[in-house]
Simulated scan of single mutants.
Amino acid sequence: MISFQPQSTLSILDNDFYKFTMQQAVVRLFPSAMARYHFINRGKHSFPDGFGEALKARIQQMQFLQLSAGEKQFLRENCPYLDPLYLDFLAGYRYDPAEVTIKQHGADLDIQIEGHWYRSILWEVPVMALICELFYEMTSGQRIPDELLISQTAAKAKQFRVLGVNVAEFGTRRRHSYHVQKQVIDTFSHEGGNMFVGTSNVHLAMLHQTRPIGTHAHEWFMYHAAVYGFPQANVSALQHWVDVFRGDLGIALSDTYTTDVFLTHFDKMFSKLFDGVRQDSGNPIEFADKVIAHYNKLGIDPLSKTIIFSDGLDYEKVARITDYCNGKIGFSFGIGTNLSNDVGLIPMNIVVKMTETRQMNGQWTPVVKLSDSPEKNTGEAAMIEAAKTILKIKN
């Protein structure tokens, strides 16, 4: 039997910020909704014997996490759009490991998360982070030493600083380890100057007194498609976001059902109200052209809006996007794996995605994502084809 002890150094805020913002919206609007998530091994990684049991032990430790008074105060002072009722709810929230089912079949791993959406929504990111950290531990992967990690991260910070761009760290879910991610943010905090604008990891944002960054994820739109239908998914998801946050957290994710479809729904009201959009798949230059043309068509100055680029970024890609977008539209970057898992080992290519949702006393309904990069599509094949037909998507 694998023994474990509560780890007091862990934090319930060691998660991406958009999980908490979405949780507030779900608590307020959809408290009866149920959700299922599944682990997808995109990289076809082979898991060593005993991995499933070791992961279960790590998951068990999560039940001891709770919001501290200091963490609650940090959220109260830095995130005024998180209302007092939600902060009180979060203070009482505890992870329930019974919501996570883990099975290992040879080198394959099967993970399902199921529960009320307002509860199960917090599992995705820490489960992925635990998988990555445990995988490197159990396969004896030797990463670069801290001295080299710090020096190469400092060099990246200098490159971005010289380029004159805004960069946020988005690497929690596929980080090598908590230690590596913290070292990266330590270094960016000291070396990045005004270039470094924050991190998606709320716990590390608090430690470094920087901004927690994020709004919503694909699951927000996937749920709305299941409940309101594919033609109304984007509009209902955006409207409900506005209903909860009243203009705060104004970066909209555009590619749950392709950017082309999203922009047909992103009318003048939403285009004016939201501060910008996030690019998470497809060709970033083509995306920029589409978004700039969209704002121009509506009579909105693209320079008053922002694109957050967040898809597989490294310095070369950031430099190319910067050169193209300068003077045309506002832009910023969220960089994940290239910061939190650039340690001389092959980064894991894994995701955990919502696969089904259920309303109170209803049936489970499959949900899908139709990305600007078709290889990132998720969901049942029949439902994907139905969505493509209804939304007239050809790829």
Rank of each mutant, 00 (worst) to 15 (best):
K272L: 10
G247M: 08
Y295H: 13
L313W: 07
K272F: 05
P231K: 05
L298A: 08
F270M: 15
D255L: 07
T256L: 00
W241I: 01
L313V: 07
H265M: 12
I251V: 06
K290P: 05
V235R: 03
R246A: 15
R278W: 07
V244S: 00
E316A: 15
Q279A: 13
H265S: 15
S236Y: 05
M269S: 12
V277R: 01
G299R: 13
T256G: 01
G312K: 14
D260T: 11
H294D: 11
K272Q: 12
R246M: 00
D275C: 12
I251T: 00
V318K: 02
P302E: 11
K305Q: 06
I300V: 13
D260G: 10
V291P: 10
A233P: 01
F274M: 12
D289K: 15
P284W: 12
N234H: 02
L273K: 15
T306Q: 11
L303Q: 15
S304R: 12
V318D: 02
L253H: 14
M269K: 10
L263W: 08
E286S: 14
G312I: 09
T264S: 08
V277P: 08
E316Y: 04
G299P: 11
V261G: 04
R246G: 00
T264C: 06
S310D: 09
A288Q: 14
D248F: 00
P302D: 13
L303T: 14
I300H: 09
V235W: 00
E286G: 12
L238C: 01
I292E: 11
K317I: 01
T264N: 06
V261R: 05
K305H: 06
G229T: 00
W241A: 01
V242R: 11
I285N: 06
Q239W: 02
V291D: 08
F274R: 00
H265W: 06
A237W: 02
N283S: 13
F266H: 11
D275K: 14
G299D: 12
T258P: 04
F274E: 01
P231H: 04
G282H: 05
Y315F: 15
L303D: 08
W241D: 03
V277K: 06
N234I: 03
P231E: 02
K297F: 11
L298F: 14
D280S: 15
Q232W: 01
T306P: 10
P284V: 11
D311N: 15
A237T: 00
S236P: 00
V318N: 05
T256R: 03
Q232I: 02
G250H: 07
L253N: 05
H294Y: 13
V261Q: 08
I307E: 05
G247K: 07
G276F: 07
D255Y: 01
D314T: 07
N234M: 13
V235M: 00
D280P: 04
